[in-house]
Amino acid sequence: MTTTDTVSHVPVQPRDKTMGMPRHHMLIFACLFVFMLVAPFLLYPIFLMKVMCFALFAAAFNLLLGFGGLLSFGHAAYFGSASYISAHAAKVWGLTPELAILCGTGTALVLGIVIGSLAIRRQGIYFAMVTLAFAQMVYFFSLQAEFTGGEDGIQAVPRGELFGLLNIQPDRVLYYFVLAITFGGVLAIYRIIHSPFGQVLKAIRENEPRSISLGYHVNRYKLAVFVISATFAGLAGATKALVFQLASLTDVYWTMSGEVVLMTLLGGMGTVFGPLLGAGIIVAMQNYFASFGAWVTVMQGVIFVLGVLLFREGIVGVIAQRIKKPL
């Protein structure tokens, strides 16, 4: 599948970089960070934490779609399974939150290896179908398995004490832990995109046969980026379980896979900041329009269609082209 048409691209000028990051990226990250530091005093911490978890989820997904050129339609599997395992680890095994998150993330990593190594043998739409099929299997497993609590999910998950020392039960305290995870995750993804490995990924996305003819074992790269993406999706899901103190079927359902596609495309796939913005917009809509019930889904659909029609490259993608700088 050629995803390149809709990937937003503005060449990076080699000039004005500090620590391998263009200055305007650094500036945006710094502004975001400062804003997020004070945000819980202005907005609901739970809402903000939800935005952050989904921002990380979308960034992870975008790594695969926007930079690996691979459209997975089953990313809920990693998000959701990590959410279940992290909830289970915190509640039943009584692990500290950082270890619970680690367990959840590790589960997503293993799942990513298993599903990824089978999916990357297929191209384009078949790839998407294989990922969807496996995600549905994870869903049915979650529905049937004992420990997931079926329709109820795993409720009242204790947030516990960070490293057994710091009580993160209060929202405002947990908030900064989630902020650290999100920023760490997003910056790690940023580095991966802008690494020698990321450069090869872009080449494969742009022209796979050519990359092969230059001697690259493209399937190994695809698997690597698949597993990394699944892992960060897992990190987001595992963290989310502690934020809401809940892991449920919604997290592994196919609509969750769809939502992350939506966030990424709306914000701008193949951009650094697009998925973050996309996640912010969608989560904000879900929150503020919650009273409209099922209509939220319809409105999401309308926004998505409008977004795709108006900005084919996503909001951030269009802005990047206007200002002629990669974002």
Binding site: G20, H194, P196, Q199, V200, L214, Y216, R220, I228
Partner: peptide, 15 residues
């Protein structure tokens, strides 16, 4: 870049 072998060094800066 192929000389780097299969460069999976995703933690390094592209610089």
């Amino acid at each position: 870049q192929r000389r780097r072998g299969d460069s999976y060094d995703f933690w390094r800066s592209e610089s």
